[in-house]
């Protein structure tokens, strides 16, 4: 397949390891990945904070960037983020229509219908659960709220993780409970957010896992931020990073402090 990648703004700047792993994984599986360089952001932050007027031009830009998918330029669009996929699928059209832009809303929805979160693309579109990954670490999985309850990926990420060779996947207690991120909630209601984060971290620690993984680097930034502050030693990695890792081209060893993933990555020899 010819697959267009939505890197997401936050991963583009802060966590490029997620879209890079997505590229590596899909190319290893024999697909062509395209990165439409016009892309910026899906508008989720503006929408969820209530800045619909400011979201519209961002959404328009996203739609224009990815509209070639409707002409068959690409077979599908992949997003390594549950919440961005959710915003594209469930909010872009609504925001456009609310602004009286029915045409743009319809175009957004048409593009959204071709847009898949990574685990959806792998399991639903490509029909894969075993992607040939190898990751010899103890890992626990946090199902992010929007992947779970907005786009309903269900256990697709777990199906993929269970098939990873040499990995010890341990169940996260109270996994479906929110980590407290919530975008600007983490700032506007910092105290409540921190209380939620504390409980999530306690559950992560109770698993003895070296790595907590999820399909969204925004939630991982939050959980990882807490784990890093607590000097827990537990690392955060995107689902894509684990699935991209193979015995021949392994992911760098997990590092449990924020900001150091990249440093570790810098030593990763031939690992693109």
């Amino acid at each position: 397949m010819r697959i267009a990648l939505t890197a997401t703004c936050i991963a583009d700047v802060m966590f490029p390891q997620a879209p890079r792993a997505t590229v590596r994984l899909l190319e290893r599986l024999g697909h062509e990945v395209v990165f439409p360089e016009k892309q910026t952001c899906c508008g989720q932050m503006h929408v969820n904070t209530g800045y619909f007027d400011e979201a519209v031009p961002v959404i328009r830009h996203h739609v224009e960037t990815f509209e070639p998918v409707l002409d068959g330029e690409w077979d599908a669009i992949v997003v390594p983020s549950g919440s961005c996929t959710g915003s594209i699928r469930h909010q872009q059209g609504m925001v456009c229509r609310r602004a009286g832009l029915d045409g743009l809303g319809a175009r957004a929805e048409a593009v959204a219908a071709k847009t898949y979160e990574l685990s959806e693309l792998l399991v639903d579109v490509l029909g894969l659960t075993d992607v040939g990954a190898w990751f010899p670490h103890r890992v626990t999985y946090h199902p992010t709220c929007h992947s779970l309850r907005m786009i309903r990926v269900g256990d697709k990420p777990l199906q993929l993780l269970r098939a990873v060779e040499a990995m010890n996947l341990v169940e996260l207690p109270d996994a479906e409970s929110c980590c407290g991120f919530g975008g600007t909630f983490a700032l506007k209601n910092s105290d409540t957010s921190t209380a939620m984060l504390h409980d999530k971290m306690a559950n992560v620690s109770s698993t003895g896992a070296a790595v907590v993984t999820a399909g969204d680097y925004s939630c991982l930034m939050h959980i990882g931020g807490g784990l890093s502050r607590a000097r827990s030693g537990v690392a955060t990695m995107h689902l894509a990073e684990i699935l991209a890792s193979t015995r021949e081209d392994p992911a760098p060893a997990p590092v449990g402090a924020q900001g150091t993933q990249e440093r570790a990555g810098a030593t990763e020899g031939g690992h693109r």
């Binding site: 583009d12 984060l197 931020g225 924020q258 900001g259 150091t260």
Partner: peptide
């Protein structure tokens, strides 16, 4: 170590309880 532990307001609302990684050396 590439970790941001203290930001001025309103970033302090984040760093009061969480670290933040610095932006990646190279964007995607």
């Amino acid at each position: 170590d590439g970790r941001v532990s203290r930001l001025p307001f309103p970033g302090s609302r984040w760093t009061s309880s969480r670290d933040l990684p610095v932006p990646a050396r190279q964007s995607f």
